[in-house]
Design a protein around this nucleic acid. Structure first.
Ligand code: SF4
Ligand code: SF4
Lengths: 145, 145
DNA sequence: CCTAAAAGGATACATAATGTCTTTTTAGGG
DNA sequence: CCCTAAAAAGACATTATGTATCCTTTTAGG
């Protein structure tokens, strides 16, 4: 449960690599794939998805390639993950309570909502800039003392 | 990503049902399955797993069935989930950093560790008693203001 | 020894993950 | 205008996982 797929992992590697380059630098897919050690054909599919929603911009033909669609400090890890993995849904009832007859009286239901919020919270708190800089936000170290 | 499987969902339903019964009451698998609307054969497999690790106790033969292995206030949701889904691992590097060449310098790595802690934190904070009672812990409502 | 019930094992089917391959579109440059 | 570089699009192949069912074996009561 809860496991990021290869696709998600590769997606992050690829776009973090881009985030480490100057914003206007156009990078070849094949170069990115080699740098982050991902099968190029697979990464191509991933970047196509990114491109569709504007996370990266693509240029075709000679001299083409990819660059970030926005400044890396304005792209959160959550966006990247959800772009390729879909929304973070610990249990189907979180986004479709009507699918479960028991949701009206179920005590577990709110727990999954809570889990979702926590996970999204962590991933929203990290930007591509943080990741490429190596300057990870000081974690709250939330010890409910 | 992050989605509980049917197995996990059914497991929770089943054991929460048990938690709502007197501790010494032996329940028939078929009754449990019917009550929580889960395929009986599937629930059987799940309860076998529970039984092996002592989360529930089983009795064979005539008059047999299942009961909780411990008091419901001493069983956390995390235990139940991990019993059937395995450990909560947002990314493989969380439990096997040696599998990834990049883990030594990777900035994403600690994020997954953080996610894991948050999720486990939420699930550890809920017991079967809470779930069967309907008395869900007052959530921290962690608004980092 | 007969019956109830769980345990264990094998199997079937569907879906999702993980890639690869081929063809098409777009763009630059001589 | 053509040639080449590069991404986009779509089809396909393979494997792993999820979701379940069935059958046989073990255990226990009466
Ligand atoms: S039983 Fe509760 S937790 Fe499970 S799917 Fe339905 S609402 Fe969600
Ligand atoms: S690249 Fe980083 S996040 Fe991805 S698997 Fe390796 S250590 Fe983990």
């Amino acid at each position: 449960m809860m496991e990021l797929t290869r696709k998600g992992e590769y997606a992050i590697r690829g776009i973090v690599y881009l985030a480490g380059k100057p914003l206007d630098k156009v990078c070849l897919l094949s170069d990115i794939a080699a740098a982050v050690d991902v099968p190029p054909t697979f990464l191509a599919k991933i970047f196509q998805q990114f491109s569709k929603i504007g996370l990266v911009r693509s240029f075709r033909g000679t001299g083409g390639g990819f660059m970030l669609g926005r400044a890396p400090e304005n792209i959160t890890l959550l966006e990247v993950v959800e772009a390729v993995e879909g929304p973070i849904i610990p249990n189907r009832c979180v986004c479709a309570p009507q699918d479960c007859d028991r949701s009206s009286f179920c005590n577990v239901h709110p727990i999954w909502k809570q889990v979702q919020e926590q996970v999204c919270g962590v991933l929203t708190g990290v930007t591509l800039k943080d990741l490429s800089d190596g300057k990870i936000k000081p974690q709250p170290t939330d010890l409910a003392k």
